[in-house]
């Protein structure tokens, strides 16, 4: 997807999640820059090679209380 279209889509997703939409031009520009930065960081993470066996660093454990 074209990056500008992607930024527009994410921006709209953010706006839809807010109680009050952001209208201020400077704030919108800051937000666009923030989204652009995030897309870059996500790309860096995506480009790091991982295998299917590389698991996330958390361990889930099933819960059982002491009660019988």
């Amino acid at each position: 997807m074209d990056e500008n279209r992607q930024i527009d889509a994410i921006l709209e997703t953010i706006q839809a999640s807010l109680d009050t939409r952001i209208e201020d031009t400077e704030e919108l520009e800051r937000l666009r820059k923030g989204i652009e930065g995030w897309l870059g960081r996500a790309a860096t993470l995506r480009n790091y090679p991982l295998t299917n066996a590389d698991e996330p660093d958390f361990v889930f454990s099933a819960y059982r209380s002491e009660a019988e």
Partner: peptide, 29 residues
């Protein structure tokens, strides 16, 4: 004032990006 806007982008970080970071984290450790 910058914190009125800066956290908004974090609302849209996809779960797969978070999990990818956690997968790389294991290798870093």
């Amino acid at each position: 004032v910058e914190t009125h806007i800066n956290p908004l982008t974090a609302l849209t970080i996809p779960a797969h990006v978070y999990l990818r970071a956690l997968r790389i984290r294991r290798l870093i450790c």
